[in-house]
């Protein structure tokens, strides 16, 4: 067993357990912490795949900023009490959801197993060599600022818009209108199409 395989095994377990923890925890704070575990596992996997910069960015941005943000909002809104996991108002939602998940996994696994290495059909080494002479940061930076500079700039604009949007959305409104309860769909009933017996013959 190589080091890589061992690391992969351990991280895989961490990731999956963390994922299950996110989904199945009653307390949202526990979910957040499980998410942290998953993200860490992913970061180590990135290292395994020779994506050093990304591993670092993952820890800093994802774990360090996004999860923290989520925790802040949780504390802000006081949503730290336990959720109700037993009831499900929509009929068939859980069954169908699990089914969907299973089929999705099954499909992808089928592709991987049957296809083997032919499952990945892209062209090799189009843009830049991964394992070339240069190290990862250098290569990533070079591609970002030459081939992909336009998406980069657009993304920067996107970030700005997101920030402005968030500020606008979370402003305290002057009059808080409560979310109304929607009308029932079943009770509306159908009027009879013709009033043949009341109107009489035409």
């Amino acid at each position: 067993m190589t080091v890589e395989a061992f690391v992969f095994g351990v991280c895989a377990v961490v990731v999956l357990v963390g994922g299950l923890g996110v989904v199945m925890s009653r307390n949202p704070v526990h979910s957040a912490l499980s998410l942290v575990a998953t993200l860490f596992g992913i970061a180590v996997l990135f290292l395994n795949l020779d994506a050093q910069l990304l591993a670092a960015v993952q820890v800093i941005v994802y774990t360090g900023a996004i999860v923290v943000l989520i925790l802040f909002v949780m504390m802000l809104l006081g949503v730290d009490k336990d959720d109700d996991l037993e009831t499900e108002p929509l009929v068939g939602q859980r069954v169908l959801a699990v089914l969907v998940g299973l089929i999705m996994v099954g499909a992808v696994l089928a592709v991987i197993i049957i296809g083997g290495h032919n499952a990945v059909t892209g062209a090799r080494s189009v843009t830049g060599q991964l394992a070339g002479g240069y190290d990862n940061v250098y290569e990533l930076g070079r591609q970002l600022f030459t081939t992909y500079v336009f998406p980069l700039e657009v993304t920067a604009g996107l970030l700005t818009i997101a920030v402005v949007g968030a500020v606008v959305l979370s402003r305290r409104p002057k009059d808080v209108q409560p979310i109304p309860e929607p009308e029932s769909m079943i009770d509306q009933g159908d009027e009879p199409l013709t009033l043949t017996h009341e109107e009489g013959a035409h």
């Binding site: 929509l90 939602q93 169908l96 959801a97 969907v100 089929i103 999705m104 089928a110």
Partner: peptide, 24 residues
């Protein structure tokens, strides 16, 4: 179209899965 976002999401997932299965 009952208004539940989760239901809509489920429908999307269902549709995507069916298409993928068909393509496969």
């Amino acid at each position: 179209q009952n208004g539940y976002v989760r239901w809509y999401a489920l429908m999307i997932g269902l549709g995507a899965v069916l298409i993928v299965a068909f393509i496969l």
